[in-house]
Structure formats: structure tokens, C-alpha cells
Design a protein around this nucleic acid. Structure first.
Lengths: 221, 221, 221, 221
DNA sequence: GATGAATGAGACTTCATTCAT
DNA sequence: GATGAATGAAGTCTCATTCAT
């Protein structure tokens, strides 16, 4: 109320403050334990105020996830798209590291949606309107790989979509396991930075380099 | 805990029936909307009976997830470990298809844990006792790849752990996107079976095949 | 209260518009579901405006009922007072039909008062100031019957007040039953217009006509 | 709980106690101010218990009205049906006095239904199942009058249904006005017992006994 | 061991009312 | 006079949990 400019750049409407507060509470307490009372208190408003701006609690939670979308997409777009600069390996390693951070930030909130089918359904409806969703992460990676293919730094026969899914999927799964097994565990063995190994493996492939074995593993027909 | 033969008979103890019912209700309604009343009704017992066998509701939910672990691990172990038989590509494709089914079955339940930090913490404690968790899925894949390396059908320099994470992570992420965006969408483009593309890409790698330089990692910059 | 010309102009003051809107909402939603928000919206004003013109919500509701009084009395006064014209039976039948319409219009709103003792009490206080209330309906009927008695068309020994109560009470009860049992029912048997039977019965009386008395009340059986 | 037989004849189930309490609170506070909290307290149960026995608050209120029906009908049936005994005038006067008591007891509760269209609708549905409603009061009166017609003590051409409606309607309207204008007023003039005048008027009719006037009141065309 | 009526804390939500603009 | 965002008390209803039977 009496704050003049807590953040110089944000309009900080009541609605935004409520969404901010809801996101903080959701991150801290989880969907199951986030109450309207606490969200309102966190935002500095009365509980009833919440219902001036949102139809119900799920509508507010959905708004949190809705606002996450552009955030997510922007982060994704910042995934290095620097085709032709540096090395492919370096770029993809940066990308993987960014993705790990992205998923560490987004996965707990996103996964919570599965706890409530009605919330998930509302989220789907919103995704259908806004074109968005987690699959958006693939796009800049695919675009980058295509650009590198054009530059000859990536195999022209490679499948960029599959490669994007392999790399980002690995990052997401790694974070998933991290979060599941707790902060004290070393999920991916003893490697503090798993990105290089993932990128190296993706670049080199598994197929043996010597065609001494006439196995049908070699697909480039 | 002190039970010696969980599965030697089709037992169907009251406790098991309650866990069964809880799993069904959790799958149908989601963690947020699963009530003890409905679980008890589904099991055919009175609500109070639940508290003869479990400390509280979270204990029952945790038991559902606990019982999922051997199920999960068993499914994972059935992932083809047939090193040397068929082709590597075929085996990994079968594996990817199995993994897709595995995640479709497990991901909604597993992701729900993120909605309740207290439940997640109890789950972590249980994981610390039982050696388990989603990372167990990597093991048979790694073992398989090592065996194929020994047979020369997989590059001896490849990193089996990274490869397992790439392949299984891609499967998990694909299912995650499927579940998020709803049954009506085509998550991975227009391919009904994404497994072959993933496996082909993983086998071939992204690096351009330069006949001059045998190191595929750093190409034509 | 201090307004001198309530109806000299089509005034449509803010206050009147609010009362209008309140009456519409009360008729549509009922006292229990009429909210200040909806009344204000219906009137085209902000919710706060309501409190510039009324002490509280009950004050507004009371104002609706207050304004209903002159309306009611005027309708009642239009009940045919045409002593000496037409026939007594015809005049009373017209009167009964008017009364049925009157109660259909007023009863739902009036009966709602019983749902809230505080509102009812305020209404009573107002009635004590304004001389009004549902009993006003008896007056023109009594006056009419007295005039007909003077003309010899109604038994000079008859009790006009009792007769008015019998006839109007019958109309009110009929509407009460109609409203209670719903629009789909036939409340008073199979007669679409119950007025003639009521009037005939009231005129003739129930006492058997002894042939010794040549009263015209008992005709051509 | 520990009461063994507070009332020797009543089962006094929890449900009944709740309905009892609800009726008491509804009579005391009115529909608009009756809260589930107070009803539960009045019944001596926790608020949640209410929802073990009723779908919601309206369901409980409806149950109150449902239980009023047999009460109402029984009271109505006790309206003197003593055809052939005493005098017609005496019997109808007793009847009118009973009806006044009946309506004094029932009208406030019954009228409250108009405050909430949803409640009224539920009540109508219930009436459609149970055959009941305020029109049931007419039946014993009609039956009585028919019996007296057979005995020759009531004009065989009289319309029993119309007569019942006239008499009971007058009683209901009188009570309605009493309740509206408050306990301190004398609603029907200065007569403490209005029953005799109503009955006398109904029996004698309004038509003049001497056909000295060739007025068109004479209907047998 | 099983029951299920009862509990009661607390969730979500509504809505009459206020007040700074 | 008008506004309408904000209030917060109070309402209805849910549901994990208990306990006498």
C-alpha cells in the first residue's frame, strides 16, 4: 500500500502481487499445503481480495503456471543459439547446463500439476490457447542444430528433433532423479557436471567407428 | 517392514487391499482429490480400518509408492538385456518402447510426490532404506551396453551411463509432455513411434562423418 | 422520508433506480440470493453508491417493500368499486380476478419477509408509521359491499368485513398454493378460473334453503 | 449419547435431533439467519455431523419442511369432521379456530420458502413425490361439507371446495396480516375471535333474502 | 481386527460494508 | 455524488482422524 516503488520496473498490480505470492508459497509448501490464507498473507492482502482477481484457488494456481510459460520460453530462447561460433560441443554443453538449471527451477512446480487432474485439465486448456508448454524447449535446440547442419558442423543426416529430445530429456530426467532422491545424494554417479559426458556421447554416438562388424546398427542407408 | 514374504502368496491381506485401493484411487483422482473415505470404500473396508494398518494417510500413500518400486524395478529389469542377440538397434528400440510404457504408467503417480514436500521427504527416507528410485532404470541399460561393448557391437569409448540417461530421459520427457499437453496432441511431431528415431540418433551421433578425421567429436569448424 | 413528490415526475433519482433494481433482483433471485453487488450492477451503479442512499442492505430491501405499499394500495383501489353498476356477482368476480393477480404479484416478495425477523421488524415499524399493510386490501371491498347494502343488492345483515376476508383470503390462499406447488400443478382442481365459484358460494351461502323462505339465493335447482 | 430415554416414544436418532434443532433455530432466527453452526450447537453435535446426515444446509431445511407435512396433515385431519353432530355452525367455527392455530404455527416457516427459489424448488420436488402440501387442508373440510350435504344440513347445491377455500383462506390471510403487522396490532378490527363472523357470513351468504330487487344477482339464467 | 458415527480444525468462498480517490 | 478495490467476519462444507462398540 504505502510502498512507492519496491521494484522500479514492475507495475506490481494487486493481481501480480498475488501471483508472485502464490508462486512463492507453492515453491515453499507445495501444491497440497498451499492455502489461500497463506498466499493472501504472503501477498499482504486480505483473503477475500484473492477472489476479486481469481475465480478460485485453482485459477490462481493456474495463473502461476501461466506466467511461468513466458519465463520458461524466454529461458529456453536464451539457450545458446550461437551457431557457427565456438564449437558445437561447447555450445551444446552450455545448453545442457542451462537446461539443467531450467529444469531444477521448473520441474517441482510443473510436476505438481499431476497431483490434481482438474488443475492439469485447466492447464491444458490454457496451453491450447497460448501456444506453449514444455515442448517449446525443443524448438531453439532444433533450430540451432539445423543451423549447424547448414554450416556442416553437424551431420546432415542427423535428426535434430530426436537429438533435442535426447539431450533435454537427459537433463530433465537427471533433475527429476535429483529432486526425488533428495539433495544429499549424488544422482549421476560421481560427476558434478554431467553435461560434458552427455554432449560427448550424443555427438559421438554409440555405434563402433570401425565397420569391422557388419551389424545392422549402421542406419545411414 | 518385518514382513518376510510380501509376495509368496497372493496374500491379499487387508493391508494389501488397502494399498491396492489407494493406488487405484490415486491414479483415478490424483493425490489432491484422493480421500481416505473413497480409498476405504474402494477397498471394501471402513474408514477406520485404514488406521489399523497405517499411521496416517501419507503413510498409506507412501506405501503405494513403496510398492511401486519393486514393480518399477522388475519392469526395468525386463528391459531387454539380450546382449549379442538381434541387433543393437533393435534391442535399444525395444528398450525405448518399454521405457515409454513404463513412464506412461509411473510418471503421473511419481510426479505427484512433488505436490507435497512432506510426502516427498518420507519417500526419500524410504528410498534411503530400500535401495531404489527412478535411477534404477539406468542399471540394466548400462549393463546391456557394457555387454555389447565387450562384444564389439558398441563403441568401446562410449559412456554407457550417459547413453542410458540420454535414451531413458528422452522417453521420460516425451511422456511428460504427452501427459501435460493432453491426450489430443501429437507431442513428438507426427511420429506415432518415436523410438526408432531416438535410437538411430543415439547410435549415429551428431558429429559429421569426416573420412579424414577419425575423431568425430570436433569437426570442420 | 422527507421527499414530497415521490411520483410527480418520472424522477428516476439514483435512489429510485436502486430501489427498482433491488426489486427486480429480489423477484428474480429471492431475498436469500440477492446480493448488493448484483443489485448495484442491475442499477448501473457501483456497489458503494448503495450506501450513499441506504443505511444498509436491509434498509434498501425495506425501501422496496415500502414502495410496494402505495403500489399495492393503488391496485387494491382499482378493485371495482362500482356499486350499483352491473351485477354484484359480476363485480365481485372481477374483484376476485384482480385479487388473484394482485397476490400473484405481491405474495413472493411479501412472504420473503418471514425469512428474516430483523427485516420483518423494520417493516412493521414502517407500517406503524405509514398506515398500510396487506389489510388495506379489505377496505375497498368493505366499502363496495356497504354501498351495495345501501342499494339493497347485498343482505343488510351481512358482515362486509368478514365477507371481504373470505373472498380475498381465498384468493391469497389459492395463489399461495399455486406458488408452493409450482407452475405445473392444477391447484384448485380443474377450474382455470376459480373466481366465479368463489363468488357464487359466497353469495349463496352454505345454509340449506328451506322452501318456506322464498329467498332468491336458492334458485332453480 | 448417554441419554437412555429422554422421550419414551421417540427414536431420537441423530438425524431427528438435527431436524428438531433446525426447526427450533429456523423458528427463532428465520431462514436468513439460521446457520449450520448454530443448528449443530442447538442439537448438541459438531457442525460436521450435520453433513453426515444431510447433503447440505438446504437439504436439512427441506427435511424440516418435509417433516412438517405429516404434522400439518395430521392437524388438518383433526379439524372437526364430526358431520351430523352439534350444529354446522358450531363445527365450522371450531374448524376455523383450529385453522387459525394451524396457520399461526406453520405460516412463518412455510412462507420463508419464498425467500430462496432453490429451496422452494427442492420443496416442490419433494411435494411431487410425497403427496402433500398446503392444499391438503382443504380435503377434510370438503369431506365434512359433503357429509353434511348428504345429511341435509348444508345446501346440496353448495360448492364444498369453494367453501373450504373461502373459510381456510380467510383464516390464513388473517394470520398473515397478524404476523406482518406484528403482535401488538388488532388485525381484524376489534374482534378477538373472528371465527364466528366468518362462519356466519359463509353460511348465510351475501345475497339479500328478499327478492324485492330484480337485480341481476339472480344467476339461474 | 473391524466398524462408522462423530469430531473439529481448517479449507475455500461469499458478501455487506468501508474509504481513499 | 460516485467509485470499486479492499476488507474481514462469517458462512458452508470437507476430511483426516478417533474411539466406543
Amino acid at each position: 500500500m504505502t510502498e512507492h516503488s519496491l521494484t522500479t520496473q514492475t507495475a506490481s498490480t494487486t493481481r501480480d502481487q498475488l501471483v508472485d505470492a502464490a508462486e512463492r508459497v507453492l515453491r515453499a509448501k507445495g501444491l497440497a499445503r498451499a492455502t489461500t490464507k497463506e498466499i493472501a498473507r504472503e501477498a499482504g492482502y486480505a483473503e477475500g481480495t484473492l477472489y476479486l482477481h481469481f475465480a478460485d484457488k485453482l485459477d490462481l494456481v493456474r495463473a502461476v503456471h501461466e506466467r511461468l510459460l513466458p519465463e520458461f520460453i524466454e529461458m529456453v530462447s536464451h539457450l545458446p543459439g550461437r551457431a557457427g561460433t565456438g564449437t558445437v560441443e561447447g555450445n551444446l554443453t552450455d545448453l545442457a547446463r542451462s537446461a539443467l538449471g531450467l529444469y531444477r527451477d521448473m520441474l517441482p512446480l510443473g510436476s505438481s500439476l499431476f497431483a490434481d487432474p482438474e488443475l492439469l485439465e485447466r492447464f491444458r486448456v490454457m496451453l491450447a490457447e497460448r501456444r506453449g508448454g514444455p515442448q517449446r524447449a525443443w524448438e531453439p535446440v532444433i533450430a540451432y542444430l539445423r543451423a549447424e547442419q547448414a554450416l556442416g558442423r553437424v551431420d546432415p543426416d542427423a535428426d535434430p528433433a530426436a537429438a533435442a529430445l535426447l539431450l533435454l530429456g537427459a537433463c530433465q530426467q537427471l533433475v527429476f532423479v535429483e529432486l526425488m532422491t533428495g539433495p544429499g545424494t549424488l544422482p549421476f554417479r560421481d560427476r558434478p557436471d554431467p553435461a560434458p559426458a552427455l554432449v560427448a556421447t550424443l555427438l559421438a554416438g554409440l555405434a563402433p567407428t570401425q565397420p569391422s562388424d557388419p551389424s545392422p546398427t549402421e542406419p545411414c542407408a
